[in-house]
């Protein structure tokens, strides 16, 4: 039925005046069982992850895997170079002298961990993202200044325009608008 150029509802955007109001509203939305929603704030609000019911990020595991790849890879890269690719006797030491390999092993562990952390964060945040439906809202521009927002997506199984609007206004929203995608 739906045609590509037809405007579709992205969801609802609710505005809050203070971080405290945002925090309390997040608890209500979380308890109502919504899954596809997000909170927006100009600065980090302590404890908001708990109020939103967010699970711990998987980022540490990405970093851990990258660290192991970097460490093991870095070590055996040097073993391969010194044993088969380009064997050289240095300071009358054996080809495989593990202490000599530690700095490069360490650096590659750190390098790949950092790649894992930065690019993993990009991936988990779906960045870079040049367009987002919420940019359509004029009021949303103030999220980088002094306003706090909760957006709930229409794709959420719990979503019903009227019911969700009611929930948000009960949660203390000062302004609620529908955002098109």
């Amino acid at each position: 039925m739906s045609q590509p150029d037809e405007k579709k509802a992205f969801g609802l955007l609710a505005e809050f005046e203070t971080p405290k109001a945002l925090y309390l509203a997040c608890e209500k939305v979380r308890d109502a069982g919504y899954k596809k929603w997000d909170a927006h704030s100009p600065f980090p609000v302590h404890g908001l992850d708990k109020a939103m019911g967010l699970k711990p990020s998987v980022l540490p595991w990405i970093v851990a895997v990258m660290a192991v790849i970097g460490g093991v890879g870095g070590f055996f890269l040097q073993v391969w170079i010194n044993v088969s690719a380009y064997p050289q006797v240095i300071s009358a030491k054996p080809y495989v002298s593990w202490p000599a390999f530690v700095p490069v092993t360490f650096e590659l562990t750190v390098l790949l961990s950092a790649f894992g952390a930065v690019f993993g964060m990009f991936g988990l945040n779906k960045l870079p993202q040049l367009y987002h439906s919420l940019f359509e809202s004029d009021r949303f521009a103030r999220v980088t200044d002094d306003k706090f927002f909760i957006s709930i997506e229409a794709d959420d199984p719990q979503f019903g325009t009227q019911a969700t609007k009611e929930l948000l206004s009960q949660a203390g929203a000062v302004h609620i608008e529908e955002v098109q995608s």
Partner: peptide, 8 residues
Amino acid sequence: MGAHGVQK
């Protein structure tokens, strides 16, 4: 929640 209200 963080520094809301000073604990005595």
